[in-house]
Design a protein around this nucleic acid. Sequence first.
DNA 1: ATGGCCACAGGTTGTGGA
Length: 254
Amino acid sequence: MKIATWNVNSLKVRLPHLLQWLADNPVDVLCLQETKLTDDKFPVADINAAGYQVVFSGQKTYNGVAILSKLPITDVVANNPRYEDAQQRILAATIDGMRIICAYVPNGQAVDSDKYAYKLAWLASLREWLADEMAAHPQLAILGDYNIAPADRDVHDPAEWEGQIHCSERERAALLALNELGLVDSFRMFEQADKSYSWWDYRQLAFRRNRGLRIDHILLSGALAARCTACAIDRAPRKWEQPSDHVPVVATLN
DNA sequence: ATGGCCACAGGTTGTGGA
């Protein structure tokens, strides 16, 4: 069983990459972020033809999340019921006895901006809701773009990024608060290469220079962490023509 | 030099992303 997450930065533009990646990597579950599509424009037929069921919650221009699955999808919930939010950033569903949560955490733009306050409030509310969800669903995974690099080793230049958005203390504390619920960063359960990142800026040849951040994560409850045998970042699609700035992260469960 | 690149809506530029 493989579960994965990928911020595609526009599913309209990236649909060919999604279909190619699934052909190369037939994962069982894939969470998508930044689909940027209203639900009436979601490419259901193309995804079904690739062998996946799909649920989605989108809006015009911004945000938008989806869950693809080879197995049946039930009990779908869009948004955190504890947090009134016009932005479509959360989708939860039950697949093969697991609670799968797809999350697109707010960017935050700049420390101390209005968007930063929104990010922190959103994360605090997420934590409250996840406590409920974990109690109801011992086998839980929350996959997505967290827009937070957990530690300096997840940042290409920690001095340049110190205190900046994605790396600030309050953001990292909000992520740690999720760990304190019992959610484990599956990537760090295993030995990994140094300078492993999941996002690179489009500018300044950042990918070629490996100037990136690791901000896309798969967090697992204890019951799922006990089943996890691997977690890897797939850099391949970042080399394709007209790529997303993020790449997929894949966790393997037995 | 505080921008560089990309996607989007919509219009000859601004906003958001990270």
